[in-house]
Nucleic acid binder design. Structure first.
Lengths: 129, 129
DNA sequence: CGTACTGTATGAGAAGATGCATACAGCCCT
DNA sequence: AGGGCTGTATGCATCTTCTCATACAGTACG
């Protein structure tokens, strides 16, 4: 249920990873306005991380206006949030591409080879998005 | 000269930002194999950051094999990584592709979009590999 | 009411990230 | 040789991140 939250050992602080992945989940429509967010404890347990670390992430999300925290009831995806999504996703796509090219180059692999494989994998798991 | 290194106030550690942006600069062909990297001091001064922080980033880049550090002379973008056997490269490429697809999916981005961008970036930095 | 859930809060402590100052050793060029 | 560059290194102070262990208060529901 929460596998889109897998943590990486990148030197990036945990709360930042959680914050950003949640933001992307919202931007991608995986979590929609009004939806209840995963409970702080759910996330903490799933990621084997401290409750306060998750709270740190959630607080930043609230500060940004992405979610609303209601004590004793839960946290919910905030209402309007569409304007940022499309542009942010374009940036994200470009970022992912740059990163992939970088990784491929460093590994001595032709980026176009990787691109081809990406397409193949994507098609094989459901053509439409 | 070093504006592609602008730091953001994201909670992401400075050394991580430097490391990743350098990696992308290399991957995108902005910095090419054999090129001298910006001096640690240059980066430190330009970003108003401690010399040791830059070194932290550069060390990780060297650990990865992306650059080579030569004391008293400078740091240089590593030569083309060709040492991998063909089979190993195939595996690596597949691995990179899977990773990219996963990252794209999580971000709500069409993997094929990313693939397209990868090709575009790869071509723009020299068609033949 | 009582139980189970939610977010809130605190305090101690370890580990990491940054900055500042300072120094050293090696290379290059004049 | 000397000056100017390069990466390397250390010590100290500070802030952030993260964990562990608790505890509390409000909500929902039987």
């Amino acid at each position: 249920m929460l596998d889109f939250l897998r943590l990486e050992d990148n030197g990036v602080p945990i709360y930042v990873q959680i914050r950003d992945k949640m933001l992307r989940a919202i931007g991608a429509g995986r979590l929609r306005p009004g939806d209840q967010m995963p409970t702080m404890r759910e996330v903490a347990v799933a990621l084997k991380v401290d409750l306060n670390t998750v709270r740190h992430a959630y607080r930043e999300l609230e500060r940004t206006g992405a979610i609303v925290i209601v004590p004793a009831r839960g946290t919910f995806v905030a209402a309007q949030h569409a304007p940022l999504a499309r542009e942010a996703q374009e940036r994200r796509a470009e970022e992912l591409a740059l990163q992939a090219v970088a990784a491929a180059t460093v590994a001595g692999v032709d980026p176009r080879d990787v691109a081809g494989r990406i397409v193949r994998i994507a098609e094989s798991k459901g053509g439409g998005e």
